[in-house]
Simulated assay, not measured.
Amino acid sequence: MTGKDVPGLTEAASAIPPGTKINVTFLGNEDLDMRVAAAKAVADLGFVPVPHISARRLASQAQLEEFLVRLGEVGATDRVFAVGGDPSEPEGPYPDSLSVIRSGLLQEHGVREVSIAGYPEGHPDIATDELWRHLEDKAAALREQGLDAVILTQFAFDTDPVTAWIEEVRARGIDAQIRIGTPGPAGIKRLIGFARRFGVGANAMIVKKYGFSLTNLIGTAGPDRFVSDLSAMLAERPASGDVKLHFYTFGGLLATAEWVQQYSASQSAAPGS
């Protein structure tokens, strides 16, 4: 959710299981008060806030510390998501999320778990070998500080690169929980727009496998097939370790929460479940 999504969260609250982790973004067009208010709303409604810390958007160490102090005042510092962020040039002393982690400030302010970014299909602006080096360095830095790590991935439409990437993560000795990003049900045009923006594979063959067609962009698409296929593939790969889902709510919090309810119910009712 963003800082503007508090009404949407309130609307969806009854459809979301208590204790669910809900990420709160760090957007350039939102201010400190909005971010903190959103994190507080998450906690007040019985969920677990995971505020984002956008390294390149931080103008100073003081700004990072102020953010962490304010989050602590509303009980929202246990878990954070440290990410580089969109600006091409850092606005302050933190060029990437690793520099935020290595500052030691997260630990000082009571953070116990840090989510870090994973890119199963790569990043449009970062070389693949650099992505792997950063992932290894961040996992090692968190381990050295005694902080729990979670790898939170970009969303995907194709299970094949996702499962191959999970295998590579484990082969590199990283045993952190992985949360695979998947979009909740949303308009097809909207999904394609986000895919292009973030460098996610979305050619005709991939999206057909996911469950929609590029020749008909009317309507919505949900992750039913992706989630079912990924679950089956991981069941055949016990070495994949702890893998869960993270839903990107492009179509709204309520629509995503209701989809999860319906999908879970259908799986429980399936023969042999």
Rank of each mutant, 00 (worst) to 15 (best):
115 S>C: 14
118 G>W: 07
119 Y>M: 05
119 Y>Q: 09
125 D>L: 11
130 E>F: 08
130 E>W: 05
132 W>Q: 06
133 R>P: 09
133 R>G: 12
134 H>L: 06
141 A>H: 08
141 A>E: 11
144 E>P: 12
146 G>Q: 11
146 G>K: 08
149 A>C: 13
150 V>Q: 14
151 I>E: 03
151 I>M: 02
153 T>V: 11
154 Q>K: 06
154 Q>W: 07
155 F>H: 13
158 D>A: 03
159 T>A: 15
159 T>S: 15
167 E>T: 13
171 A>Y: 10
173 G>D: 11
174 I>E: 12
175 D>C: 08
175 D>T: 15
175 D>H: 14
176 A>K: 06
176 A>F: 10
177 Q>A: 15
178 I>N: 14
178 I>S: 15
181 G>N: 09
185 P>K: 00
185 P>A: 02
188 I>G: 00
189 K>W: 00
189 K>E: 14
192 I>K: 02
193 G>C: 00
194 F>K: 00
194 F>P: 01
198 F>T: 01
199 G>F: 04
200 V>M: 08
202 A>G: 09
206 I>Y: 03
210 Y>I: 02
212 F>I: 05
213 S>Y: 03
219 G>P: 00
222 G>P: 13
223 P>H: 04
224 D>Y: 04
227 V>K: 10
228 S>G: 10
230 L>A: 10
230 L>V: 12
232 A>E: 13
232 A>I: 03
232 A>D: 14
232 A>V: 06
233 M>I: 04
234 L>E: 05
234 L>R: 01
240 S>T: 04
248 Y>T: 02
249 T>Q: 04
253 L>E: 10
253 L>V: 14
257 A>Y: 07
257 A>G: 10
258 E>Q: 12
258 E>V: 13
